[in-house]
C-alpha cells in the first residue's frame, strides 16, 4: 500500500466502493485568534494552510459563511446524514478501473 499527493491518492489497495465523510471543523473562532500570534512568532499556525487561506479571504471572524440557497443544515445524528453530504458524489474508482487495475488494485 502506498500513498501519493499527501494522502489524496494511493496504490496497491482494494478500495471500498462507497466513500465516507469527515465533518471538518477547521474554520473556528480559535483559529482566527491564533493566526496573528503564530504569524508573529514565526511558527506555523494552528490551522492547515488551506484553512488559513480561507480565513485570510474572510478577513475578520465576524463574517458569516452562511448563504441562503447555498448553505444547508446537517443533523449528523440522522441515519441519512452521510447520504445527504455525499449526494451526487461519484464512486471512488473511475469507470474501467477494476479491482485488478493499476493504482487501486491489490498489491503485487
Amino acid at each position: 500500500m502506498s500513498f501519493s499527493d499527501g494522502l489524496h491518492h494511493g496504490a496497491g489497495m482494494r478500495l471500498a466502493p462507497r466513500p465516507m465523510a469527515f465533518l471538518h471543523y477547521g474554520l473556528t473562532a480559535g483559529v482566527t485568534a491564533r493566526q496573528p500570534r503564530d504569524r508573529l512568532s514565526g511558527l506555523s499556525q494552528g490551522g492547515t494552510p488551506d484553512d488559513l487561506a480561507c480565513l485570510r479571504a474572510l478577513g475578520r471572524g465576524e463574517t458569516s459563511l452562511w448563504h441562503e440557497g447555498v448553505s444547508a443544515r446537517l443533523d449528523a445524528t440522522r441515519p441519512d446524514a452521510l447520504a445527504q453530504l455525499l449526494q451526487g458524489v461519484a464512486p471512488p474508482l473511475l469507470r474501467g478501473a477494476g479491482p485488478q487495475g493499476r493504482g487501486f488494485g491489490p498489491a503485487a
Binding site: A16, A21, F22, H24, A29, L58, L65, W66, R73, L85
Partner: peptide, 15 residues
C-alpha cells in the same frame, strides 16, 4: 482502504 471526503462545516451565524 476507503476514501473519505472532507466536508467543511461552519456556524449558522458569525464565524
Amino acid at each position: 482502504a476507503a476514501l473519505v471526503h472532507r466536508v467543511d462545516m461552519y456556524p449558522l451565524g458569525p464565524l
